[in-house]
Structure formats: structure tokens, C-alpha cells
């Protein structure tokens, strides 16, 4: 569920922690933080993805599906992929063009290795698009059977970053 929302930057007085002399970018981020906190309040589903575009300020927010909606499962591998012949596999794919990181920092251990069994929502990597970092999570529990993209490699939209086989069901 993607809900595009456009926000005006409120007067600095409306934004906690901002001041008159704050840099416009800081003010903008403050405003966004302020709005997101409001949107993340009680009764709202958990936030999943946040995208801030500069220019004519646009903020895109993706919420987790509401409870009464059938939760989406990890997409089955598409036919064009070489892996597609094997049915029943799960994938984690790039939600945007960017750079894929397998670890939080250069020296840190990777989030996952081939053979690991991960829980649903476990982080498997980070995607960086124009300095915006987003966490990449497994949508379902499974065993990692392939990590086809090396750390720090550029990836396309929808590129397979991790292949998993389902476990424990």
C-alpha cells in the first residue's frame, strides 16, 4: 500500500526542535520527522518505507498492510530469471536502483550468509539510492540458498538480491 502525501513545510514554530536560523534542509527534515511521527501513531500500521523527494517536496510512505488484509508473501521468482525454473523459491529484490550492501559497515559481519535460516522480517541487506539508505528484509522465514550480488555492487530495480527456500511450514 503506497500512499503518496504532499506536505507543506510548516512554520518553524510548528516543528519541535527547529529554530529560525536552522538550515532549510534541516527544517525540511524536521518537518518530515514531525509528520511521520504523527502518521506512525497508535492505530496506524507499522511504517515500512519512507521516500523523501527534494524539489517540490514530496513524501511517499508505505505502510504495512492492515491486519485484516491477507499479508503478501515473498514474490515467487519470475519466469525470466534463471532461477525461475525451480518453483517454490522466495526472493528478496531491489525496490529501487541503488547500491547493495550486505553489511551495516565495511568491517561489520554480513547480515546473512548462504545457509543461514532467517526469520520473517529479518534484514538481509541495505540498499542505498542517492544517499538514502533502506533496509532490505525477508518477507518470510527461510534458508538463504544464494546471495548473487556482491557487497557494494550497483543493482537495478527488481534485481534478485537473495534467494531463499521456505522453512518451517
Amino acid at each position: 500500500m503506497t500512499v503518496p502525501a504532499a506536505f507543506q513545510v510548516p512554520d518553524s514554530a510548528d516543528v519541535p526542535g527547529s529554530s529560525e536560523e536552522a538550515d532549510p534542509l534541516e527544517r525540511l527534515l524536521g518537518a518530515v520527522r514531525h509528520h511521520v511521527e504523527g502518521l506512525n501513531g497508535p492505530g496506524m500500521p507499522a511504517l515500512r518505507r519512507l521516500r523523501v523527494a527534494s524539489g517540490a517536496v514530496s513524501v511517499e510512505i508505505e505502510w504495512d498492510p492492515l491486519q485484516d488484509v491477507v499479508p503478501p508473501v515473498a514474490e515467487p521468482v519470475d519466469a525470466p530469471d534463471p532461477l525461475g525454473e525451480v518453483s517454490g523459491l522466495l526472493t528478496v529484490r531491489a525496490p529501487a536502483v541503488g547500491t547493495f550492501y550486505r553489511a551495516r559497515e565495511p568491517e561489520a559481519p554480513p547480515f546473512v550468509e548462504v545457509g543461514d535460516i532467517v526469520q520473517a522480517n529479518a534484514q538481509v541487506g541495505i540498499l542505498e539510492t542517492m544517499k538514502l539508505m533502506s533496509a532490505l528484509n525477508a518477507e518470510r522465514a527461510g534458508r538463504i540458498i544464494e546471495l548473487p550480488v556482491p557487497d557494494g555492487a550497483p543493482v537495478e530495480y527488481d534485481q534478485v538480491l537473495a534467494v531463499m527456500e521456505p522453512v518451517g511450514e
Partner: peptide, 25 residues
């Protein structure tokens, strides 16, 4: 070629971040 997003233009051909990332890569 670089796959930059899903069918809706807003998330592909109208998405500056995706195009810039493709240009840098």
C-alpha cells in the same frame, strides 16, 4: 540498459533518484 522502476512513470521515468543512480552506476 538499466531497469529503473515499475510501470507507473512516477516511479520510473519521472523518478530523478532512479535515473541519477543509473547514470552514476
Amino acid at each position: 540498459r538499466v531497469h529503473i522502476g515499475p510501470a507507473p512513470a512516477r516511479r520510473s521515468y519521472l523518478n530523478p533518484a532512479a535515473i541519477l543512480a543509473a547514470a552514476q552506476h
